[in-house]
Each structure stands twice: as structure tokens, then as C-alpha cells.
């Protein structure tokens, strides 16, 4: 099993990436919890004993799409609000989702354009190592306006996966 990622897309256009365990299978549920603060909880089904859990702290109720990405394809989940539930001082906002197989054509086109503008080849970048490679991946990340959820290595790994597709 290869590396997997989740790509989070917000209504305001922001996109963030987080790495998933290779055992991740598909979206289980998404909901937000409001107390004074608000967080989203994204549960991803897994072949492990427990679902993978990702905590979303950026505008949790404005998350629009979740894309689970792996080498061979991607699944897109479009979120729609599905009511709320109050318990004491806490309110949960639940979301339904529709699931569809999808490609990453838009991101692949974007990365191809970035490479063209920078006059760089995907294979050449993939052959690089150390700081030089990280610096190239970081430039692509900024141009594509991709961010990471918690660890920068996740989004750089995701870009490397996209480069492998276009190489």
C-alpha cells in the first residue's frame, strides 16, 4: 500500500493537505463540535482497529470538500449540512456527504503549468535530493496555494506524488 493523503477544500478556496496511514479506506463521517471554540472531526475508515481521526481547527463549518488521494486515484466527498444536536453546552453540527470517484485533473494541470512557467521538468525535480529538492517543492506549493494541516512534510509529499503522475 502506498502513501495516502487527504486534501481539504474550503468554501473560500483554501486547500490543505494531510498525510493518511496507508490503511485508510474512505470517509466515515465529518462533524463539528461547538463549545466556546469550534473544531471539526474527520473520521476516516481504516483497516486498522480504529478509524483515523483528523482534527480540523480552521473554519470547520466552512469545509466544502474532502478528497482522499492515493497513487492510483482519488475519491471526492462533497459535504452538506445535516442538522445539529445539542448536549449540555456543546452543539454538534453533522454533515452528510456524496461520494464520487474523481481524478486530480485540476491539480495535475496546475502543477504542469507551474513547471512550464518555471521551466522545470518533473523528473528533474524528483531526481533532486536534500535542501534543493525541498526548496523546489516548497516553491511549487506556494505557487499552487496549497498548505499543510499540521506537518509541512505532508504537503511536500503530496506534491511529489503529483510530480510522479506528470513525470
Amino acid at each position: 500500500m502506498g502513501q495516502k493523503y487527504v486534501l481539504l477544500r474550503w468554501k473560500d478556496g483554501i486547500q490543505e493537505v494531510s498525510a493518511l496511514a496507508p490503511e485508510a479506506k474512505g470517509l466515515l463521517r465529518y462533524y463539528t463540535i461547538v463549545r466556546i471554540e469550534e473544531y471539526g472531526r474527520l473520521a476516516v475508515d481504516s483497516d486498522e482497529d480504529y478509524p483515523e481521526l483528523i482534527i480540523i481547527d480552521r473554519k470547520p463549518r466552512e469545509l466544502a470538500e474532502i478528497v482522499l488521494v492515493e497513487d492510483c486515484g482519488a475519491k471526492q466527498y462533497v459535504l452538506t449540512p445535516a442538522g445539529e444536536h445539542r448536549e449540555g453546552g456543546r452543539t454538534d453540527h453533522r454533515f452528510d456527504f456524496t461520494e464520487a470517484e474523481c481524478g486530480l485533473d485540476d491539480l495535475v494541470s496546475q502543477i504542469q503549468e507551474v513547471l512550464r512557467n518555471r521551466n522545470k521538468g518533473a523528473k528533474a525535480i524528483l531526481k533532486m535530493s536534500g535542501k534543493q529538492k525541498i526548496s523546489e517543492l516548497e516553491e511549487i506549493r506556494r505557487t499552487m496555494k496549497l498548505r499543510t494541516l499540521t506537518e509541512e512534510a505532508d504537503v511536500l509529499g503530496f506534491i511529489e506524488m503529483l510530480l510522479t503522475r506528470v513525470a
Binding site: 472531526r41 480504529y50 478509524p51 483515523e52 481521526l53
Partner: peptide
């Protein structure tokens, strides 16, 4: 806490 919450998702 993270493990406890993962278990809750199960």
C-alpha cells in the same frame, strides 16, 4: 486524548 477520540469514532 487522540486515542480516546479515535476509539469514540469506532
Amino acid at each position: 486524548i487522540h486515542r480516546y477520540r479515535r476509539m469514540k469514532e469506532k
